[in-house]
Computed example of a mutant assay.
Amino acid sequence: MSRTLLAAVAAGLISLSAQAQAQAPADPPKNDYGDKANWLCLPGRADACAADNTTTVIAADGKMTREAWTGDPKAPVDCFYVYPTVSNDPGVISDMVAGPEEISVVTSQLNRLGAKCRIFAPLYRQFTLTALRAAVAGGPAASAARPNTGYLDVVDAWNWYLAHENKSRGVVLIGHSQGSGVLTQLIAKEIDGKPAQKLLVSAILGGTSLPVDKGKDTGTFKSIPTCKSAGQVGCVIAWASFRDTVPPPANTRFGRPRDLNPAMEAVCTNPAALAGGSAPLHAYLGTTTNGQDAAAWVKGGAKVETPFVSVPGLLTGACVSKNGFNYLEVHVNADPADPRTDDIKGDVVYGTQVAQDWGLHLIDMNLVMGDLVTVVGAETKTWLKH
Rank of each mutant, 00 (worst) to 15 (best):
C79Q: 13
P280W: 01
R45G: 10
K194E: 12
T70R: 13
V349S: 05
V376M: 06
T208C: 09
T288A: 15
A163M: 07
L360I: 03
G276K: 03
W158I: 04
L260M: 14
T149N: 08
A60L: 10
D156G: 08
I237N: 06
S321Y: 00
K36N: 15
P29C: 07
N31L: 14
R3E: 08
F242G: 03
D61L: 04
W239Q: 11
I237G: 01
A8E: 04
T382E: 09
P122K: 04
L372F: 11
R3L: 06
S278L: 06
V373D: 05
R146N: 12
V9F: 05
L6A: 14
G207R: 13
L360E: 04
A272F: 11
R243Q: 06
A8F: 00
T65D: 10
W297N: 12
V92R: 12
E101A: 12
K222A: 10
G139V: 05
D95Q: 03
A295Y: 07
R340C: 11
E165P: 01
N31D: 13
I237W: 07
V86S: 09
G193S: 02
G286M: 05
A68P: 03
V154D: 10
G179Y: 02
V82G: 14
V332W: 07
K228R: 15
A279F: 12
M96R: 05
R258E: 14
R258C: 10
W383N: 01
P225F: 05
P100K: 07
L210N: 10
W358F: 13
A196N: 08
V92M: 11
V212Q: 05
D213M: 13
I58E: 02
D156V: 07
N333S: 14
A137G: 05
R243H: 13
N159W: 08
L42T: 13
